[in-house]
Design a protein around this nucleic acid. Sequence first.
DNA 1: ATCGTCAATCGACGATATTCGATGAACGGG
DNA 2: CCCGTTCATCGAATATCGTCGATTGACGAT
Lengths: 111, 111
Amino acid sequence: MDEQKEPLPRAEAEEYASWFKALADATRIQIVSLLARRREPMSVGEIVAVSGVGQSTVSHHLKILSEVRFVLVERQGTSSLYRINESCVSCFPTAADVVMGNPVPTAPVRD
Amino acid sequence: MDEQKEPLPRAEAEEYASWFKALADATRIQIVSLLARRREPMSVGEIVAVSGVGQSTVSHHLKILSEVRFVLVERQGTSSLYRINESCVSCFPTAADVVMGNPVPTAPVRD
DNA sequence: ATCGTCAATCGACGATATTCGATGAACGGG
DNA sequence: CCCGTTCATCGAATATCGTCGATTGACGAT
């Protein structure tokens, strides 16, 4: 019979974990919710000004967030404008996805 | 006007992060999905047998998962039986919650 | 009471992550 | 062409995390 004794394959578990890792830090949560409050894209400098952490730290977190395509970047002259990727927000896995064994969502590749 | 310039308060960001931290590890993802596949509660020994990591490691992860009430424990004689907390699965925050500034869900205190 | 089983805790170790300050590279303006 | 601004990257310090083996404690059976 289809007795599900095996654990979730490690590879899938890692993929799931990498999603949740992206939001598993308070500073990144702040950045994400900040970008969401402002409807328009924000430059790194603006984010630094209100987030209370150093510029290199903000840049680092933005890199992590953009690697999972949670935020999108658009370079404009000398500054980089970051904004939320709406389609990535909606495909973000839920705890129910994990529990029900749904396939791991893949971040949309388009920018 | 209500110009939302302030970042999300650090305390709330930390609460959000602690939720996502709970699922930010591949082994915990495996344990959670394992408990979900089996409908009935599982003992630590059973989980160890199929998860491929040591007993103390499993115990450690189960502790983390039960601290956010994602799993519930029921001690039975010499063994501990763990099971998924369904109501915690459904209240688990989504990325949309973060982005929309919803209040941080609190894990149900009942066991 | 003693032994064996089961699970939680402890201590330690290596691996990752977070943060910072400093440096560097790209760009626009005078 | 030089300078200031803006951001990414580097290197290092620190903190946190995941894992293990060993120990401890609780319980049941003999």
